[in-house]
Design a protein around this nucleic acid. Structure first.
Lengths: 218, 218
DNA sequence: GCCAGAATACCGGTAAACACGTACGTAAAA
DNA sequence: TTTTACGTACGTGTTTACCGGTATTCTGGC
């Protein structure tokens, strides 16, 4: 049992990264990549039919993001250990993912060995955060203590509005598209900014990209 | 000569992608990865000291972007064939890169095999664009004919203003930061939008991210 | 020396964003 | 059941964005 290979599933919407990462992990003797997925749904399907010990997933996927995918995955298979892989290291983002049950987080800026280290660490039942993320999180805990549970989460409607804002539409257009009054859209916009502590369309746009609410290639 | 391995150098600011891609390419018998770089400068250094046939580089790198890197690389070693690898497929972006002398372009959304196909094609002296990029480019040529040479390039000052816009600053703040009149900043903003055919802060922000003018983790 | 382009600056106008308030019905949660 | 959160909608006001034109200065190229 101890010298059996660890079964790993990968998920990333960039197929080239997905395939490349598979090649990287397959070089490791103790690792067996049992499936790769381009979306959160595919990852759930893999976990439903194959033995998966560890899932490494991109967080910034469109449609279903990493946090939602993590929740559903753990509801389906509570023993799977989730490692978040992302280009970003938002404090709030990492905390959300850990709250969702993830056991590790590494950024794509780190070396490939960092992911292997994370895999080996969570395999032992521990939690692994790559250095800069760990620093961000501990700073957050030291600075703003009541950040643990007070996770501001936007509603589905707000998310919908945010997506259209990040696509460059005005409030009036968004109202037309959603069959709402323009004033309602502006309230949503205001609430989003208040909840997320963002203060411009530029920041809203970046947040939306980081969280997979919109794609950058729009 | 014909059955010698092709020497490839890689460049990407995401080290994990860089290392994973190296693992993917090293599986190929005809390919020898002679160096990997995290920045454009490193890639130039590698090309200066090692034999490189093909360079696969990420376009959205901070500091020196892919287009500038391509220019300098080809000035240094005109025989190197450059393949652009990017998460995005901007029409203008691709055209700029091809004008700079690149021989291929594949997006990260494509499968890993797509990059291998690009490598084998440019090795034969041909140009390779992945399907969706090829469609975008041909559409651009069919739609707006005088797009070939009229490559709108923003000035250094405009780039500076764009960066601050994408960081979420207002025109007034940008003016203060750059010691300009607010009206001047607004003219720059206007010219940027006109040149790039963008019509909102959201679009400006995404363009800035795609082109490495600002980072998404701001 | 002239011309084109860049960078600077100002004026005017419309539309939109942004901040603050109030209000109501419903649905979920305590 | 009371409370809380959400989605809906309106009003008022200030700031900013966005589109148009004009003009001066400076620099680089022909």
């Amino acid at each position: 049992m101890t010298n059996a290979k660890v079964h790993i599933a990968l998920a990333d919407d960039h197929r080239m990264f997905l395939h490349a990462l598979r090649a990287l992990l397959e070089k490791e003797p103790g690792i067996d990549v049992v499936g790769v997925a381009g979306t959160g749904e595919e990852l759930l399907a893999i976990a439903a039919h194959k033995p998966v010990d560890i899932a490494c997933m991109d967080i910034g996927m469109p449609a279903m993001n990493g946090i939602e995918t993590t929740r559903r995955l753990l509801a389906l298979r509570p023993n799977i250990k989730v490692i978040g892989v992302s280009a970003f290291s938002d404090r709030q983002f990492v905390l959300d993912l850990l709250n969702a049950g993830a056991r590790g987080y590494v950024t794509k800026a780190e070396a490939g060995e960092e992911l292997l280290r994370a895999i080996h660490t969570v395999q032992l039942g521990k939690t692994y955060l790559c250095p800069d993320v760990a620093a961000t999180v501990t700073n957050a805990l030291l600075d703003n203590v009541p950040r643990d549970i007070a996770t501001p989460r936007i509603t589905a409607r707000e998310r919908q509005v945010l997506q259209l804002i990040a696509e460059g539409h005005t409030s009036v257009r968004i109202a037309e598209r959603l069959h709402l009054a323009a004033s309602t859209v502006e309230v949503h916009r205001r609430n989003i900014m208040r909840k997320l502590d963002l203060h411009s369309v530029a920041e809203l746009t970046k947040y939306a990209i980081r969280n997979g609410i919109t794609t950058i290639s729009g």
